Every structure is written in structure tokens, then in C-alpha cells.
Simulated scan of single mutants.
Amino acid sequence: MAGHSKWHNIQRRKGKQDAIRGQLFTKLSRDIYLAAKEGGGNPETNFRLKVAIERARQNNLPADNIARTIAKATGTLQGVSYEELMYEGYGPYGVAIMLDIVTDNRNRTAADVRHIFSKRGGNLGEAGCVSWMFHRIGAITILKEGCPMSGDELMLQALEAGADDIKEDEDSYLVITAPEAFKSVRDALEGAGLTLEDAELTYQPDNWMTLDGEQAEAVMDLIEALEAHDDVQNVYTNFEPAD
């Protein structure tokens, strides 16, 4: 029985890992699809596609999947058509949440997301209910490892290119830009020989809401459930756990 139990646990864990990998592959493929649909299928001239492909390769998405997804997006291969949506709502304790949605069936996705919110003490709201609490920024990540510049040199380079700020943590630098300056700063940093780990337009809250204990756990449970849904590409929130 012990041997059977061990094998059962291994299979269950493997099944869970396979499901997580499949879910990740779905999200990566949709990123590639939307990037190629928006800016064409050449990653040399479409930076969003270039970043999406690099992220997919880092997570071992097969090359055939990448090529097939680009072909679908550019019309050379028939397939489903996706649309991008933004959902807004409130989590437990009034935490603000925004979701980037990519779906081929908005009615199904809305019902799923509404159920996830309501089951965990939140509610899906109307457009504009929380977006006023956030602002759009450009975020460019550069790893310290392999960076040819010091932090001071990178800051000078970024600010001269039009960046608003640069933040540093243990492993990386984060360059913050206004949305309209994002492309020019990104191009300038690449032109200076820097390798960008990530570069995207994202949302940042104007003010953070700090929770701890059971309150933080309740919010994290909702966020994790939303992130686990295939159609949710990104989750933005003004919640941060207490130290």
C-alpha cells in the first residue's frame, strides 16, 4: 500500500505540474499571438513579439508552437481569433484589481471571472470602477549579471534617454518611463549595448494598500485563482503584503 500511495502521489504531482506547464504555454502563446497580430510576424521589427518569443523560449515553449501561433496571428494559418479586454473589480477588504484578459469567448470568460471573484469575497465591477487608482507606466528590467554598466552609469543613460526613474534591487534594475517615452528609452538602452530582460507597458497603483495575516491570505487566494485562469494574462492590484 505504501508503494501504491507513493506512486499515486508522484502521478498526482506530475499531473499538477503538467497542468501548470500547459496553462503557462497557453498564456505564452496568446502573448505571441497578440504581439504578431498587432505588429507583424517579424521579431526584428516588432519588439513586443521579440520579448514574447524570448519569454516563451525561456519557458521551453516548443519552436513549432511559436511558429504556428505567429502564422495564425498573421493570417497564414487558420485558427481561433482572440480579443484583448480589461476587467476591473474589488477583492476582499476593498483591494482594487484589474485584469488583462485575452479570450476567444468573452461571455464564458466574464462568467468564469465573476465566479472567481464572488467565491472569494470580491466582486467583478464595471469599467472604470478601479482604473482611476492606477496609472500606466513603461517598465524595463535589466539584470545586474552581465550588465556592462554600473548602477550610476545606467541611471545617467536612462535619464538622458527620457526615463522618469530607476529602481534597484538585489538582482536587477527597473527603469520606469512615461508611456509615451517607453519606446525611445527602450531603443536607447538597447542601442547602448544593454540586454533587456523584459520591457512592457504596465499599470502601477497611485497608492498601496497593506494587509497582513488572514486578510493578506484572503487577497492572495483571490489573486492566485485569477492568475490560474487561462484567459487572465496579467493581474494588477494595489495590494501589498506587510513585511
Rank of each mutant, 00 (worst) to 15 (best):
I116K: 10
N59K: 00
D165W: 04
V130T: 08
L201N: 06
I66V: 02
V232F: 00
E180Y: 09
E217C: 10
R114Q: 14
T210D: 11
N238R: 02
L156Q: 11
S172N: 06
K6C: 12
W7G: 13
M220P: 04
M155R: 09
R136M: 10
M98I: 15
R120C: 06
L28A: 03
N105F: 11
E160D: 12
V185Y: 00
R30D: 02
D31C: 09
S81I: 14
G213A: 11
D164R: 06
A192T: 06
N42E: 13
I116C: 08
I10R: 07
F25T: 03
Q233P: 00
T202F: 05
L222Q: 01
N9Y: 11
A139G: 07
R186W: 13
A52S: 05
S131Q: 12
T195G: 07
I176C: 04
R120A: 12
D64V: 06
T202A: 01
G213Q: 09
A158S: 13
A228S: 11
G213Y: 10
Q204K: 14
N207T: 14
A52W: 04
M86C: 13
A35C: 09
R114D: 14
D206W: 11
L226M: 06
Y236L: 02
I20R: 08
N123C: 12
A181I: 08
K119Y: 11
Q233M: 12
A67Q: 09
I97D: 01
K167V: 09
I53E: 04
A73M: 03
M155F: 05
Y90M: 14
Y33C: 05
G125S: 11
F25A: 05
W7M: 13
N238G: 00
R48M: 08
V219W: 03
K14W: 02
L143M: 12
G15M: 00
G193Q: 05
R68C: 02
F117C: 07
G89I: 04
D152A: 07
G15I: 00
D18R: 02
T177R: 00
E168L: 05
G91I: 01
D165A: 10
A52D: 00
R30A: 02
F134H: 09
Q204R: 13
S29C: 12
